[in-house]
């Protein structure tokens, strides 16, 4: 087995675009769910709205890329307000139901036949990323030890990790401030926070909007990387991957979402390549599984790892065990 190549390809995923996208999505969920206790099961919708914002403005309406970015973020804010206004006064479960429905609505409207002229139907939209790649300062591939990155992906990674760093910095600053304290208190007991003179509804809305905007950034980065905006990328499993990543890394921790995303995508690739190599070298007999099964088996193994993690380390990799112990009281 060629361990060198397996590790090389796996480490590429560790810092790759998938990890960036899901780190951003999970950072958003971390603000909403980890710190504020809001169950947003519609992060995919925010990412989709972000991707569509750029794609529709640039390709469909042939307007500026930068306007597209503004519209993408604005649309995420509007979506958060739309979801939040009716539900944030109610119990937490209502937001969960509404957001999961909204995420499917966004996807289905995007791929619908009647919206084809604007959203491109199930094929999605292409041809909106030229401005982004025109800005690419990298003119030649970067070689770093065994790794070689092409100009295009270098640019996406630079911007993507830049955004991850910026969002993480914001979360770090916010969560050690009185603003973050109010959010954490709302997660614990919102009536207590109301009784102390805080406008709980306003804070929940701010949290939902901020998490949603970061989710939209995830969608923007991913569609620019792909050069295409395809609605089916943003199905509900997008949201639940992000949740798994957040819980693995540690909810309500600053670096949890980033660490979780890197580990999950590393593990996916590593398990996949190891299985393939083992099958090729006949360490795994043919009657047990063949090359075509690896895609499914890696999910199964990842699932097992997640279950073991929740049993033995429910607080996630970076979480504080004492906090979880309080729940058991």
């Amino acid at each position: 087995m060629d361990w060198g190549s397996i590790f090389e390809l796996s480490i590429r995923e560790l810092i790759g675009v998938q990890a960036i996208v899901f780190a951003l999505a999970a950072i958003g969920i971390n603000i909403q769910f980890g710190y504020t206790g809001l169950l947003n099961f519609g992060q995919a919708a925010f990412a989709a709205v972000g991707g569509y914002g750029v794609a529709v403005i640039v390709t469909t309406y042939e307007m500026s890329f930068w306007l597209g970015i503004v519209v993408a973020i604005g649309a995420a804010v509007v979506l958060a307000l739309l979801l939040g206004v009716p539900t944030l006064r109610l119990r937490a479960d209502y937001l969960a139901i509404v957001t999961i429905a909204a995420s499917e609505i966004v996807r289905l409207v995007g791929r619908s036949a009647w919206g084809r002229d604007v959203f491109g139907g199930s094929d999605g939209i292409t041809g909106f990323s030229d401005t982004f790649y025109d800005l690419n300062p990298f003119t030649e591939p970067l070689e770093f030890g065994p790794f070689e990155f092409r100009e295009r992906i270098l640019w996406v990674m630079a911007v993507g990790w830049g955004l991850v760093a910026l969002c993480t910095l914001m979360v770090w600053l916010l969560m050690r401030s009185p603003w973050g304290r109010v959010l954490k208190a709302i997660r614990e007991d919102e009536d207590a926070v109301r009784s102390l003179g805080k406008n709980v509804y306003g804070y929940k809305m701010q949290s939902l909007v901020m998490g949603g905007v970061i989710g939209a950034l995830a969608g923007i980065v991913y569609s620019l990387f792909q050069g295409a905006m395809q609605p089916d990328v943003y199905a509900t499993n997008f949201t639940f991957f992000a949740y798994a990543i957040l819980i693995l890394g540690g909810a309500a921790t600053v670096f949890g979402p980033v660490l979780g995303a890197a580990i999950v995508w590393f593990a996916f690739q590593f398990i996949d390549l190891t299985l393939r190599a083992a099958i090729t070298n006949e360490y795994i007999p043919d009657w047990l599984m063949n090359q075509n099964d690896t895609g499914a088996v890696r999910f199964m193994l990842t699932g097992v790892v997640l279950v073991l993690l929740l049993v033995f380390r429910p607080q996630g990799i970076l979480g504080d065990r004492r906090e979880i112990a309080l729940d058991a009281r």
């Binding site: 600053l173 401030s177 603003w179 954490k184 614990e188 926070v193 701010q206 901020m210």
Partner: peptide, 26 residues
């Protein structure tokens, strides 16, 4: 508020905190 420390519970009670506004918090 279980997962906040005692002192954080107390600090939360103060009204008119400048750091409770989103932009100033950073």
């Amino acid at each position: 508020l279980s997962k906040l420390t005692v002192i954080e519970n107390m600090r939360l009670g103060a009204t008119g905190q400048r750091g409770e506004s989103f932009w100033r918090a950073m």
